[in-house]
Design a protein around this nucleic acid. Structure first.
Lengths: 229, 229
DNA sequence: TTCGTCGTTACATCTATACATAAGAGTTTT
DNA sequence: AAAACTCTTATGTATAGATGTAACGACGAA
C-alpha cells in the first residue's frame, strides 16, 4: 500500500507536467511529502534525487526544492564501438587499415593533447564499411608516451578503437560534434563528392591525467545521430 | 572514519580503471564490499547504482555485479535555450522573426509527427544573432491541433522556443544531429557561401502522447557541440 | 534427457533513525 | 549600518534491519 520511490517520482513528475506545480514554484519539503505519500523520507529523497538528475527540479539546502524555470533538457548519446553500431543495424562489418606512421606530434595536436615538445605519436587512418559500403573514416593519433605498446600492436586486423578498449578499460573523454566539407581525401574514402557536408565527431581521451588519444571520425554522407530524452 | 558512498564509488572505479578488476569479471557482492569498506550495505548499493548509471558496471539479481566488457560510453549534451547559450558566451542576444504562416501540414511533416490528414500547423522561421552576427536559423512547425493558442501568440518579440517552454513545461523529445549543405536561403540567413557544411539539429517534441512541434536548427558555419564524459 | 519445482543467493527497495551541512533569517556586536 | 554570530530548517548522507524479487542451479519427475 505504501508508495514506492517510483510512484512518488511519477506523481511529482505528473504534478509538474500538468502544471499543478508551476515552473519556479516551491515544492513541499521532503518531510511533508513523506507524510502525504505515507512513506519514509528516504523514499521521497530518492525520487527527488532522480528528478534532479533528470533536470526537472533544483534543490538547495534550507532553500528547499523548486521546479526548474527552464528545464535543462539533456540528451544522452551512446557512443558505441563502430563495429557494434554497424552490426546492430544488421549489416556486415569490414575494417581496413589505410595508413600507419610514427611521427613527432604536429603543433596543433600538441596543443589539443597538451603534450610536451618532441612527443612521439602513432598516426593511423582506417576505414569502416557496412555491407561493403564506406561507413566511417577514422583518423587517429595515439600518444606513444602514454601507450608505448601501441607501436608494436598490429592494426591490420583489428581497429585501434577495439585495441584501445582492451588496453585501457576506462578513461575520461571530451567529444565534439561538427559538420565539415569533404576534401578530396575524405570524398575518395567515403565515396562522396568533394564539398559534400559530412558529420564528424572529434574525441580526446585521457587516462590518469594524461591524454592518450585524439580521434576524428567522419561519417558517410547523410549520417545522423539520434537520441530520445 | 567510515567510508562515504563517494569514497566507495571512487575506490571501485579506481580498481576498475587500474585493471585490478578486469572487464567481464565479477565484482564482490554488496555484503562483502560493505564489510571490507566498513560501511552499511546501503552505502555500497548507492555507489554501485551510480556506477551502473555511468555505464561502468552491469548488475543482475542473483547473477551479481560485473565490470562491463565494452564500456557504454555515453555523453550528455545539455540542450539550452538559444538565448541562454549565447548570453553564457558573453555575447549580446538578438532575435528576429523571419516569416510566419498557418498552413496544412505537408506530407513529410505529417509523417514525422504522425498527424492526421488536414492538420493545421503554424510555420515559423526565425533568426538568432550573437553580437549582431548570425548564430542560428530556426525553422519551426507547431501543431495547432495540440497548441491552438499558438495562433494568437506574438512571435515578433519572443522566440517560439521560449514561448513553448512557458506553455508546456515538460515534454518528451527526439533529437538528431546531422550535417547539411547550405542552400541559398540558409547561406543568405547565416552569412555563408551556398554549399558550406553546416551543423544542424532536428527535434520533435511530444506532450501527453501527441506531437506538438518539429524544429530544425541550423547553426552558423564552424559551430561545434561539445561534451565531457 | 528434458522439464518443472524449489531453495538459495544477490540485488532492489523501504523504514526509522541519526547526524552532518549549507544557508536563510534574525540577533548581537562593533 | 556593516559585520559577526547563532538559530533554525531543509536537504545530504549514513545505518541497521527487513521484505520483495529475479534468476542460477540442483534435484527430482516424466
Amino acid at each position: 500500500m505504501s508508495a514506492t520511490y517510483r510512484d512518488v517520482k511519477a506523481d511529482i513528475l505528473d504534478k509538474i507536467t500538468r502544471g499543478t506545480w508551476a515552473p519556479g514554484s516551491l515544492v513541499p519539503s521532503e518531510v511533508d511529502l513523506a507524510e502525504t505519500y505515507g512513506c519514509a523520507r528516504a523514499t521521497v529523497n530518492r525520487a527527488m534525487r532522480e528528478l534532479v538528475e533528470d533536470g526537472i527540479i533544483e534543490r538547495r539546502r534550507k532553500a528547499g526544492t523548486r521546479v526548474r524555470m527552464a528545464p535543462v533538457r539533456q540528451a544522452r548519446f551512446a557512443i558505441p564501438i563502430v563495429r557494434k553500431e554497424i552490426e546492430d543495424q544488421g549489416a556486415a562489418y569490414r575494417y581496413a587499415l589505410v595508413s600507419r606512421a610514427v611521427a613527432t606530434a604536429p603543433d596543433w595536436l600538441r596543443a589539443r593533447l597538451n603534450l610536451a615538445g618532441g612527443g612521439q605519436v602513432l598516426h593511423l587512418t582506417c576505414m569502416h564499411y557496412a555491407d561493403g559500403i564506406p561507413y566511417q573514416f577514422e583518423d587517429r593519433w595515439i600518444n606513444l608516451a602514454v601507450l608505448p605498446q601501441a607501436r608494436e600492436a598490429d592494426f591490420a586486423q583489428t581497429g585501434p578503437n577495439e585495441w584501445l578498449v582492451a588496453e585501457i578499460p576506462f578513461s575520461d573523454a571530451e567529444i565534439s560534434f561538427l559538420a565539415v566539407s569533404a576534401d578530396a581525401g575524405l570524398a575518395a574514402h567515403l565515396g562522396c563528392a568533394p564539398g559534400d557536408a559530412l558529420f564528424q565527431t572529434e574525441r580526446i581521451t585521457w587516462w590518469q591525467g594524461a591524454a592518450n588519444t585524439f580521434v576524428r571520425l567522419t561519417y558517410r554522407r547523410g549520417h545522423r545521430m539520434t537520441a530520445r530524452y
